[in-house]
Design a protein around this nucleic acid. Structure first.
Lengths: 267, 267
DNA sequence: CGCCGGATTGAAGGTACTCAATCCGTGTGG
DNA sequence: CCACACGGATTGAGTACCTTCAATCCGGCG
């Protein structure tokens, strides 16, 4: 639980440090403003968000087009469905949910994004966003103007390929969710959800077995195609099983193999 | 049903009028072979599959990289999950389904693709296909080697943008399916499915109200997250309603507003 | 003609939903 | 400092919807 060197207040989520999100927040920028120059080349999330094989010069040009935007609090919109598309956003710290709204008021959470992940890809198609992106906690993003990104990716094949991979990865992710929504039962869905979170926390150097949920039961339910009561009941079931420990939004995975069996096994 | 002016053979889908998919296989190529030169610039599906604003020279280069592959029959695989990625495929005639398989044998149909649509985007991410593509009838595809497509899209910004739009469109489509699977009831799902088909047939100059399904009840069910019996029952319900006419795989939409109301309206 | 696979229909059962009461933790005001 | 209010989470009871299992139908093909 060490303090990161060089300007820790950069991450005002120091509070979280005690628990989980821990040290992922070590960056060298100074204080606040809504729009700052950032340095991709020195970003600790680089390997999550940029291709590894950019030259120094290429990296420099990435730095030139991207800007840090800070100060998003829980409930703030990064963009709204219908708004004009300008940029993709790389999540620098914090987390967001994306949701699509139906005319009749129904809403479906389509994803929970955490740092190092890129959102806004849905908007390229129509030049307008097709979903909302809402902060789930205090968050920061790197804005990547898409026109400039495209120009750069014409110059740098490795960047181009990376951009394509990011979009493709999103498509594959969505396929997985379709499988989940189309053919899994409540327990299987929740197990898959927990394992997915676990894996993504692990990829960020956080504990894969102990973490804080940033989303409500209602939001989890929307994402998994279940009602919040069902989510709650299933959590309780897992708790009774000894599969997990859950208390409000803090979760501990006790028996990952059991969760994997649930997800992998028919019926 | 008016013929478009200026080169009506541009739309050779006149034939569909008689007996739907019928002779969809009339291409200007001569006889059979598995791999032929094609001419995007003269392809009647161009506006579905390529950007409209390519110059003659640019179009020529597209012609150079793409090849027609024919002879896919119902049940044939265009590619399989796990196989190495080389190319995207534009469907020239016929139709395909894409499906993801779970270790435990469960399968989820993730989409039904018809002519003018491009498949294979999921494979970019890992360089291996993550789903199967299976022909639902006699079909032909244009193979687009992805490396060459990337190279070309570095040279032609409009092609680059188009490629991005295609990928983004796929992401948006998937969001819609998540909404469907996550929060709609059986009737709403089937109504949404029929309206979607209707719209896509219309975009191809075919009847939006009368068409042949190329997929079984089982496949529809997998796509919609329902069992085949439920699909069948819901068809019967709509039939009883007077909303549609359905007999085996031939469908007639009698009351589109009713279908729209079902999809748009809460509960 | 009879078989076969796909589609339809029926009856019974199960899973998740709805509605409603209670609990719990946090923050607020007395 | 405690009481209270509030929103989110949990739990319970009854119900609706979809599934399961099974029988029958239908059309195409050998």
């Amino acid at each position: 639980m060490r303090q990161a060197a060089g300007g820790c207040e950069y991450f005002y989520r120091c509070s979280f440090r005690v628990s989980h999100f821990a040290k992922a927040h070590s960056v060298q920028q100074s204080v606040s403003s809504t729009r700052l120059k950032i340095v991709c080349s020195r970003c600790n999330l680089r390997e999550l968000c940029l291709p590894v094989d950019l030259s120094a010069e290429e990296m420099q040009q990435m730095d030139d087009i991207s800007h840090l935007k800070r100060g998003y609090a829980r409930g703030d919109y990064l963009y709204r469905s219908g708004s004009k598309f300008h940029s993709l956003y790389a999540i620098r710290s914090g987390s967001f949910k994306t949701q699509v709204l139906h005319e009749d008021g129904r809403e479906q959470v389509t994803g929970f994004q955490m740092m190092g992940e890129i959102i806004g890809l849905d908007a390229i198609c129509t030049d307008h966003h097709t979903c909302d992106a809402v902060a789930m906690e205090n968050s920061e993003v790197c804005e990547l103007p898409f026109g400039k990104l495209e120009a750069l990716s014409r110059k740098f094949p490795s960047l181009q390929r990376h951009l394509h991979k990011i979009m493709s990865r999103e498509i594959v992710r969505d396929q997985g969710i379709m499988l989940l929504l189309g053919s899994m039962r409540a327990e299987e869905r929740l197990a898959a959800f927990l394992l997915n979170l676990s894996q993504r926390f692990a990829a960020r150097g956080l504990s894969p077995t102990q973490f804080q949920l940033r989303m409500s039961r209602q939001e989890i339910g929307s994402y998994l195609g279940l009602k919040l009561e069902t989510v709650s009941r299933t959590f309780s079931l897992f708790q009774g099983n000894g599969t997990i420990n859950v208390k409000a939004r803090s979760v501990e995975l006790l028996d990952m193999p059991a969760l994997r069996t649930l997800v992998g096994k028919q019926q």
